[in-house]
Design a protein around this nucleic acid. Structure first.
Length: 285
DNA sequence: ACAAAATGCCAAC
DNA sequence: TTGGCCTTTTGTT
């Protein structure tokens, strides 16, 4: 259940543990048996995260595109796996040799095994092989990812500023901005004090620049922490230790609760099939 | 224990 | 607009 920060962390895990290694590929569940046979025995040569999409290149010709959707997850087994949080990354230790390699848990679409590390993929909404031209075409349809060095926020603004759609809907469109999901959109708009229904064409360039910058900072913090924390320290209860989940958001999942800043009950409604949360007092820009 | 919701998206109606 | 994907998390008994 990731937004862009989780996918980036997963990509980092694959770079550290799998890139440059030859992998045995299989599909315990069976639904990816044909694809697994194609990449079986090839070397993982490149790893790329773009928004919520992760791409793994095997040999020279085969790109695997994985999108976790709402339910997908990678479960890792093997060595040296400290340092990860949870989100969609579940790690288990291989300290007991007699139980290694472990049996797949649940419906595992794809297992990648270097001999030292195993990655099990279950529940993805996409797990498909692409040729290099198909990969290029797919990338061309993806929006700007604030976590990427090559991102160009002006390209995203051009699309936003040309649209009558509400900014809260535009932020979710992965062909405009890649990596923002339902939690980040609600929280970013709150932090920017922007009214979610404001049409994209009414957003000033200054509005957008601030939104983009804040989005990049929040996503990078998400990569660092392994979870989404959007409240500023001064706006949440002071306590030691990790920020509690219920203290992590201004408006997301807080429908009916008092706004942290002004006390007005947080509003919610469905927009583009997802629940939108906002404060009608604070978000008037 | 069990039920419902969830950080997403697509195909089908 | 709805169902499906398939799992974990969260809340309610």
């Amino acid at each position: 259940m990731p937004e862009g920060h989780s996918v980036r962390r997963l990509a980092d895990a694959f770079v550290a543990r799998f890139q440059g290694h030859r992998v045995a590929a299989s599909s315990p569940q069976g639904r990816f048996a044909d694809g697994a046979a194609i990449i079986d025995g090839l070397t993982l040569s490149q790893v790329d995260a773009h928004g919520k999409q992760m791409f793994l290149r095997f040999g020279n010709e085969a790109w695997l595109r994985v999108h976790l959707g709402m339910y997908g997850m990678w479960r890792f087994h093997g060595e040296g796996l400290a340092g990860f949080g949870r989100e969609s990354v579940v790690l288990s230790d291989a300290s007991a040799p007699e139980s290694y390699p472990p049996a797949p848990v649940g419906a595992v679409r794809l297992r990648l095994d270097t001999g030292r590390n195993i990655a099990d993929l279950s529940g993805p909404s996409a797990c498909v092989l692409m040729t290099p031209p198909e990969h290029d075409a797919f990338l061309a349809g993806l929006g700007e990812d604030p976590l990427r060095e090559d991102a160009d926020p002006a390209k995203a603004y051009a699309k936003i500023n040309a649209s009558r759609m509400p900014i809260a809907a535009l932020l979710m469109r992965q062909d405009i901005v890649a990596g923002i999901g339902n939690l980040y959109r609600a929280e970013l708009l709150f932090r920017a004090r922007l009214e979610p229904h404001k049409p994209g064409r009414d957003l000033t360039r200054a509005d957008w620049d601030a939104l983009w910058r804040d989005g990049g900072e929040l996503l990078r913090e998400g990569v660092r922490l392994g979870r989404i924390v959007c409240t500023r320290p001064e706006d949440r209860p002071k306590r030691k230790g990790p920020v509690r989940r219920e203290d992590s958001f201004y408006v997301a999942h807080r429908a009916g609760l008092p706004c942290r800043i002004c006390g007005t009950p947080v509003r919610s409604e469905t927009m583009a099939g997802r629940m939108l949360f906002w404060c009608e007092t604070c978000q008037v820009g």
